[in-house]
Amino acid sequence: MNGEGILPQEGAIIILRDIAKSYWRETLEIPVLHGIDLEIPRGGYYALMGPSGSGKTTLLNLIAGIDRPTGGTLQVCGFELNDLDDDELAGWRNQFVGFIFQNYNLVPVLNAFENVELPLLLSGLSRRERREKVEHALELVNLTDRMLNYPRQLSGGQEQRVAVARAIVTDPELLVADEPTGALDSKNAEEVLQLMERLNQDLGKTIVIVTHDPKAAHHARHQIHLEKGLLDKTIEVNR
């Protein structure tokens, strides 16, 4: 990453201009997002909400750089994503984005330590440096004592905390999460949400989550509502 395309706006980490996205089913074009304009400031905590099919997951995918828009421009973490080729985009994701998935998506044959270490394998860090970073990440999610456990030996909540540790181990600026509590019971869900809130407040991570759950959305500082591929409203959460 060479830093080209650094944003002129101080503080805005995500800038979307007239973003459109369509999918094709054979010859049929299915528009999902229409002309989305959005700015998310650095250090923000945003929840994308809306009914099924409103385009919230598609919007998250575009912000995270794992999908490309069919129209418009998006600048994330200082980079114009349309200008990056697939390999550059992969490198960008590794450096700037942490992913948290609904089903944790840990590698079953790797223990917690090795799962968290995965994104660092691309970094060129020494074994000792990687170990320090992994231990620090596991410490932040309070799982130091389970680092040698395999996913099958962990509870759902612990698995998701390992996934959070994997997401933050490269110290990315942006964390994206799609229904991070969707597979958890209320107690574990609350723990994970509190953890994400701490990452936002204490470490200054910018967080964008997709959720159907009003409780999860309540942990965010802003809620963005989408309706039929359009931005409906943005609400500041009062706590």
């Binding site: 995270a64 794992i66 697939d86 390999d87 992969a90 490198g91 960008w92 994701r93 590794n94 450096q95 992913f99 998935f101 998506n105 590698v107 995965l118 994104p119 691309l122 994997r166």
Partner: peptide, 13 residues
């Protein structure tokens, strides 16, 4: 799914 996770984490194709 795992392959897609790897790619999301920054592994090139």
């Amino acid at each position: 799914t795992e392959i897609s996770v790897f790619r999301a984490l920054g592994f090139t194709a």
